[in-house]
Amino acid sequence: MTTEQLPEHVRANREYWDGMADQWVAAGERSWALNEVTWGVFSVPQAEVPLLPDDVNGLDTIELGCGTGYVSSWLARRGARPVGIDNSSEQLRTARRLQQEHGLDFPLLHGNAEAVPYPDQSFDLAVSEYGAAIWCDPYRWIPEAARLLRPGGRLAFLGNSVVSMLCAPEDESEKPTERMLRPQRDMHRFTWDDGGVEFHLGHGDMIRLLRANGFEVEDLIEIFAPEGAPDSSFHYAPADWSRQWPVEEVWKARKVS
């Protein structure tokens, strides 16, 4: 598929991420160097937020919106056979360099996570941390994840919490408020002034979408800032706010049909 044939939001996000990829190089380098798996803006340990299965050895995995590929690197070190796909060629440039530096080799695809060039039932686990989870249309990428997973396969993804999106100002440089600024009803697409296009659903809509695509919801983990944590480097996650309300959430589901 040529760039011109991609959906409008995919084209917009490709330009957005190619333009800001250099801002994520250092973070990617730090994450590749970690032996411990951590999640979200406050680097909460996997033991406290078990997004991944306890044992991934021998699993075929797909990271949907892999960015610099650090989640796939964690999976590879633990015996999985990962594949990463990302919309940004510049993000993947960093991922390939880090593969060489760390002596890991797994497929990295430049493409749209809403349409992955792999056959049906190719994977045991599909995972996304701030990748497809917020940058792809859930009404497209959730069905695609279902297509890619084998029966019994797991889907796990992390993104902004519903409450954080309802309290987020239109000016992305401002901190979240202690009151809701937008309606939850019909929440779906968020287009920001910097050109990025995000997608967020309320919990009821997400549960119905997962169930409609053959998933059984196994867990919803809401992530708060740990006690004593300093402010994160992200404007939308000041520590004082994030200790009172969940700043992020993890969804875990199993494909049953």
Score class of each variant (00 low, 15 high):
Glu4Trp: 01
Glu4His: 03
Glu8Arg: 13
His9Ala: 15
Arg11Asn: 04
Arg14Glu: 14
Glu15Arg: 14
Gly19Leu: 05
Gly19Asp: 06
Ala21Arg: 00
Asp22Met: 08
Trp24Thr: 05
Trp24Cys: 00
Val25Gly: 02
Gly28Ile: 03
Trp39Phe: 11
Ser43Glu: 15
Gln46Met: 01
Leu52Thr: 00
Asp54Gly: 13
Asp55Ser: 08
Thr61Phe: 06
Ile62Thr: 03
Ile62Leu: 15
Ile62Tyr: 13
Glu63Met: 04
Glu63Lys: 12
Leu64Glu: 12
Gly65Ala: 12
Tyr70Ile: 00
Trp74Met: 09
Trp74Val: 01
Ala76Gln: 06
Ala80Gly: 09
Ala80Met: 06
Arg81Thr: 08
Ser89Trp: 09
Glu90His: 11
Glu90Phe: 04
Arg97Trp: 06
Leu109Ile: 15
His110Lys: 05
Glu114Ile: 09
Glu114Pro: 03
Pro117Phe: 08
Tyr118Arg: 14
Gln121Gly: 03
Ser122Lys: 02
Phe123Tyr: 07
Ala126Phe: 05
Ala126Lys: 03
Ala132Lys: 02
Ala133Leu: 06
Asp137Gln: 11
Pro138Trp: 03
Pro138Val: 10
Tyr139Thr: 13
Glu144Val: 00
Ala146Glu: 03
Ala146His: 08
Ala146Gln: 02
Leu149Ile: 01
Pro151Gly: 00
Gly153Gln: 00
Leu158Asn: 03
Gly159Glu: 08
Ser164Asp: 04
Met165Asn: 12
Met165Trp: 13
Leu166Trp: 07
Asp171Phe: 10
Asp171Ser: 10
Ser173Arg: 14
Lys175Glu: 14
Lys175Ser: 13
Glu178His: 14
Met180Glu: 12
Pro183Thr: 09
Pro183Ile: 02
Pro183Trp: 03
Met187Asn: 11
His188Ser: 08
Phe199His: 00
Gly202Ser: 13
Gly202Cys: 10
His203Trp: 03
Asp205Leu: 00
Met206Phe: 10
Ile207Tyr: 09
Ile207Thr: 14
Arg208Asp: 07
Arg211Gln: 12
Ala212Thr: 09
Gly214Ile: 08
Glu218Gly: 06
Leu220Ser: 05
Ile221Ser: 01
Ile223His: 00
Phe224Ala: 01
Ala225Pro: 01
Gly228Met: 09
Pro230Phe: 06
Ser232Glu: 13
Ser233Gln: 12
His235Pro: 02
Arg243Tyr: 04
Pro246Gly: 10
Pro246Trp: 08
Glu248Leu: 04
Trp251His: 02
Lys252Val: 08
Ala253Met: 06
Arg254His: 00
Lys255Gln: 09
Val256Gln: 00
